[in-house]
Design a protein around this nucleic acid. Structure first.
Length: 464
RNA sequence: UCCUCAGUAGCUCAGUUGGUUAGAGCGCCGGACUGUUAAUCCGUAGGUCGAAGGUUCGAGUCCUUCCUGGGGAGCCA
């Protein structure tokens, strides 16, 4: 008589008492004495464990001895109402099959809590902890919600290339992609590396943004988005930066900067609400163990109207601030972290969308305002994590775009395909980039971005 | 990359103005306990004090360089 495996998530929601059930999973803890033992088993389907009750004399001593924290097994038995405190349902075990032992002398995970720094060193095993189980279930749910949101709105997902020959985005240092031998690369007459002999017959890099390609898609399909890995070879050592991260970049034809802000705000609120509605157990756990204010903060951001403020007005607010800044504020300077934090966390106490920045501190492709000084850029600033979204209305007028490209000494010839969209059937359009891991930081309450991606890539670290 | 703090047992940490044999809690292992909840109680084992140099009669402790990690800054998402 074979019983089919039930997920622990399903089992904990059932009240089919006295029914024969079978679970498979990993041991979290075992407690007990010579007569009775309790095994808490987790199978990853939920943060909650199910408790199996063992009538010790009915099992082989050698088998029970090998059931230690981390071991994998299957347990079959009868689903019963618990006679102990702390859980309402448990399994009265009839049979146990041990799959894999976990030597307690060397298995690094203990029953007690570990520091995030230690768990990061054993990233291959940290999935098995409550915290990282919760984090990565939420990561999946948010990833799914992103596709659902855009699909429901009629957007199309564009798979922008990961290898690019364009280095004109200006979004940061790039990782070179090459098949040339670094020890003896072919040289040309000028003793420079001869990339014509490389795989793509030109220098290529990992993408720093899918935006330019997304624009091409938007100017035919209307609303599109990319959601893929992004690579920045910056030597950034902070709790908010990764060398490899995931970015969502919607791009919409006929949207101006205000439509863009509406989209960004609606999108973020949708994702936060989705997590609150669909990851309740995991978020409650994180609220209890990681960040006591998490749920309150998520609820308030999901409901509040974001502040919308021009850069120029933000400067006025900062100049009047009753606080000394390390970096003085004046019109034209780029805002520092301390300025953004003041606006979001002290002055307004809610998310702020800043727009219309001086053109000198923003990218070439941004729509120029009639004042000749500012561009229609927008940054969404969140409490705790700062810039979560950066975007803009794009310059759709060929002459203005070309002028800007030449002023900034960008390689006009390499951008011929991008410029063609302005040459043929150009339209107003806008888009933005959302850093997925920064969203994850906000939704999970975790404080280091290396703990919301399974295997973080940072300077001098590509383990696993 | 810059500033700053740290690195001592499997984990989290203490270790005095430099002084003999480096400690604790938790975990592991052994024992006790008939319903446990990070179980409890008793006991044992467990150390290249991040690495390499240097100062000193003597260095976990002071100096130099490097490595690793945390926090802050810059770059950005």
């Amino acid at each position: 008589m074979d019983i089919k495996r039930t997920s622990i998530k399903d089992l904990l929601q059932s009240n089919d008492f006295d029914k024969s059930v079978l679970i498979k999973g990993w041991v979290r803890t075992k407690r007990g004495n010579k007569n009775i033992a309790f095994i808490a088993v987790n199978d990853g389907s939920t943060i909650h464990n199910i408790q199996a009750v063992i009538d010790v004399p009915a099992f082989e001593e050698d088998l029970l001895k090998k059931i230690t924290t981390g071991a994998s097994l299957e347990i079959s038995g009868t689903l019963v109402q618990s006679s102990g405190q702390g859980q309402s349902i448990e399994i009265q075990a009839d049979n146990i099959v041990l799959y894999g032992e976990a030597d307690p002398d060397t298995y690094p995970l203990q029953k007690k809590g570990h520091s995030m720094e230690f768990l990061r060193e054993i990233a291959h095993l940290r999935f098995r902890t409550n915290t990282f189980g919760a984090v990565f279930r939420i990561r999946h749910a948010l990833s799914f919600a992103i596709h659902k949101y855009f699909n429901d709105k009629g957007f199309f997902n564009i798979h922008s290339p990961i290898i690019t020959s364009s280095d004109a985005e200006g979004a940061g240092e790039m990782f070179r992609v090459t098949t040339l031998d670094p020890a003896k690369p072919p040289l040309n007459d000028k003793k420079e590396v001869d990339f014509s002999q490389d795989f793509f017959a030109r220098p290529t890099n990992l993408t720093v943004s899918g935006q330019l390609e997304a624009e091409l898609g938007a100017l035919a399909l209307g609303g599109v988005y990319t959601f893929g890995p992004t690579f920045r070879a910056e030597n950034s050592n902070t709790p908010r930066h990764l060398a490899e991260f995931w970015m969502i970049e919607p791009e919409v034809a006929f949207n101006d900067i205000n439509d863009n802000m509406d989209l960004a705000e609606e999108f973020l609120k949708y994702l936060i609400k989705y997590a609150l509605d669909n990851c309740k157990d995991d978020i409650e756990f994180l609220n209890n163990m990681v960040d006591k204010e998490l749920i309150n903060r998520l609820k308030s951001v999901a409901e509040v109207d974001f502040v919308r403020l021009s850069y120029t007005d933000a400067i006025k607010v900062l100049e009047k601030a009753d606080q000394k800044f390390e970096f003085p504020v004046s019109w034209g300077v780029d805002l520092q972290s301390e300025h953004e934090r003041y606006l979001v966390e002290k002055h307004y106490k809610k998310p702020v969308i800043l727009s219309d920045y001086p053109k000198e501190i923003k990218a070439f492709y941004m729509k120029q305002n009639d004042d000749g000084k500012t561009v229609r850029a927008m940054d969404v600033l969140f409490p705790r994590i700062g810039e979560i979204i950066g975007g803009s209305q794009r310059e759709e007028v060929m002459e203005k775009l070309l002028t800007r490209i030449r002023e900034m000494n960008l390689p006009e010839e390499e951008l011929w395909w991008f410029l063609d969209t302005r040459r043929y059937g150009t339209v107003v359009h806008s888009g933005f980039g959302l850093g997925f891991e920064r969203l994850m930081l906000f939704v999970t309450g975790m404080t280091n971005i290396r703990d919301v991606i399974p295997f973080p890539r940072t300077p001098r670290n590509a383990e696993f």
